[in-house]
Amino acid sequence: MIDPRVKLKNPIIAAILAYLVPGLGHLYQGRNVKAAIYFFCIMGIFTWGCSLGEAKAVYLRWDSAQGQPKTRTAGFIAQAGIGMVAIPAYVQFNRYVSQFEKENSNQTSGAVLETIDADFTGMFHHKGTGEHGPVTGRITGQRVVGQYGYGHEFTGSFVGKTPEGRDVKATLNGSTNAGSLKLGPIVTGLDDVTLTELTLKRQTPHYSGSERRFYARIVDEESRIQDLGVLEGTIPRSSTNHVLAPLSDEAMQHLHGRLGKYYELALVYTWIAGLLNVLAIWDALQGPAYGYGDEKHDEPEAEKKDAAPTAPAAA
């Protein structure tokens, strides 16, 4: 029975609020100290966990490849105790699945998949002039469905500068079927790639996340066929397309390799935070489990004091 001194207001609303943000349900009920305890303790270890895992410890993934079940569901069930994270992660998972289906459905050749107008950072290699090196600039173009509905093709252009300030202009063309186009998905996911080659060259790790890999051929401007070289690097991916989105196997391996046990700690912290919020939700719904707290029978010290005077008399 709930102690009448505990005012739960509308417990259903309080439980929903507590699920969305730890402590919010208790704030609604006017139980401010508890709201502070739940918020700072649960969100504290959760954000610490996210920080240890470089914000890549929380995501939902449900897929199977080559008959092998590959799921990330058990861990996510624990993390899903915090609604403000679980709901966006679920949305990101569905966005990735719908994007994947859209890109792999039987579409008419030439159908536009996306228009790219983005900053580029990477390397260029020009066979004709023998030039190669780092370059930054802007890529514009369109990614379309390939011939006969298979694969993707990209046509566009690049305008940029080398670190020395020299202008670089190039016409770009590539096809995934020919291996001359490699472009990370719009939403990070299972087919994403990590930039191993670039990592080696630039000594800075790149993960599927805030950057998408871009690799296309530099072609002759007139014929658009003659292969003149390669432009390889990254274009940015918006935070709405990578935060809480499912990770690729390669990205996961890189994270494990680099963060080691700290990534495991990140998972444990976020799991425990999600599970602790279940206690907070239950408290918002049903009140404290043992009572208000001033009941004497729950206090072992009080029991000892009460029992102390009678003990010698019995002896």
Binding site: V33, I37, Y38, L276, L279, A280, D283, P288, Y290
Partner: peptide
């Protein structure tokens, strides 16, 4: 803290 807070009401 969280476990104890879910058991009792008195701070």
């Amino acid at each position: 803290l969280v476990y104890s807070a879910s058991r009792f009401e008195m701070t």
